[in-house]
Design a protein around this nucleic acid. Structure first.
Length: 285
DNA sequence: AATCTTCTCAACCGCTGCTTT
DNA sequence: AAAAGCAGCGGTTGAGAAGAT
């Protein structure tokens, strides 16, 4: 392997054992980051970008290599249905796996498998377009939202969620000072798309039932039902699960125009946009 | 055994967006 | 507000490995 050429005098192509050792020693001593300075300070004839990639995809101590388990494979397929080619996001749910590895695995194997699977479609039930009342917490598997929000531009709100059964949870952001109720907006957007979360909670998705297995930053309300907040970089995800399965809310707060993308495990479901403001940290109250 | 074809996956490239100056 | 620097992402490449002929 290797495309060893010399561009501006820098080495390219496969890393040698010696280079790996130098980089590993350097990162252990000085930590990650400032990759632009790494080659010079570590004495490597590589660009910083190459060093970063080598560390993140290969040298990191917590990396799991090869032997993707059936559970991981299933999770990748399902997350790909949900998220598309957002490899970094998918990798974030598979501890020890890198986006590059998952991307390669998908491109060489899973895309074919997934395509085959689609042809022999046993399929979930078709997407229901019926409107289901959302705010009845006593209804089994029904999820209700009460969201208090000052405005889209203000980053403080309260997010109350009732899950019945198994539990009722209240989520409060650290600074919930100035608030304004936007629950009507939220619910309205659900109804505008004629979506009911409860329609999807019976989907079989056992791998994600226990989010502790997959999320590094999560807060599990209960063993089989609850709300998970996951922060990956400056992007955040909010997931909902119940004892019958789970629905996903995937707020993407990375842009100037914060949008709540709601994908409920249906590949052709599209996205439901609802204004949601950014948040840095949640805590379970 | 030799050659050809396909597959794998580490690494590179270009782009985007965020942060700092 | 603009420019520069930096980090991260996803698409693509291509050498080597594995399999087929």
């Amino acid at each position: 392997m290797g495309r060893r050429s010399s561009k501006e005098g820098l080495s390219k192509g496969p890393w040698t054992v010696m280079e790996d050792e130098i980089l590993t020693d350097y990162v252990k001593a000085h930590g990650e980051g400032k990759w632009g300075n790494v080659p010079k300070r570590a004495g490597l004839n590589r660009c910083g970008k190459s060093c970063r990639l080598r560390w993140l995809n290969y040298l990191r101590p917590d990396i799991k290599r090869g032997n993707i388990s059936p559970d991981e494979e299933d999770l990748i397929i399902r997350l790909h249905k949900l998220l598309g080619n957002r490899w970094a996001l998918i990798a974030g749910r598979l501890p020890g796996r890198t986006d590059n590895e998952i991307k390669n695995y998908w491109n060489t194997y899973l895309c074919k498998k997934s395509a085959q699977g689609n042809q022999s479609s046993t399929k979930r039930k078709p997407i229901s377009r019926k409107v289901t009342p959302i705010a009845n917490p006593t209804d089994h598997h029904q999820v209700s939202f009460t969201t208090n929000l000052q405005s889209v531009d203000e980053y403080h709100h309260t997010f109350n969620m009732s899950l019945a059964p198994p539990t009722t949870a209240t989520w409060v952001q650290h600074n919930a000072a100035k608030q304004k109720d936007i629950s009507s907006q939220f619910v309205k957007d659900f109804n505008a798309e004629n979506i009911s979360i409860s329609d999807y909670l019976d989907l079989d998705f056992p791998q994600l039932r226990d989010f502790d297995t997959y999320d590094t930053h999560n807060l599990n309300v209960s063993e089989k039902g609850g709300v998970i907040s996951t922060n990956i970089g400056h992007k955040s995800q909010l997931s909902i699960c119940s004892d019958k399965g789970q629905a996903f809310l995937v707020p993407d707060w990375s842009g100037d125009d914060p949008v709540l993308q709601t994908n409920l495990l249906e590949p052709d479901f599209g996205s439901l946009a609802s204004l949601m403001e950014s948040t840095d940290e949640w805590m379970y109250n």
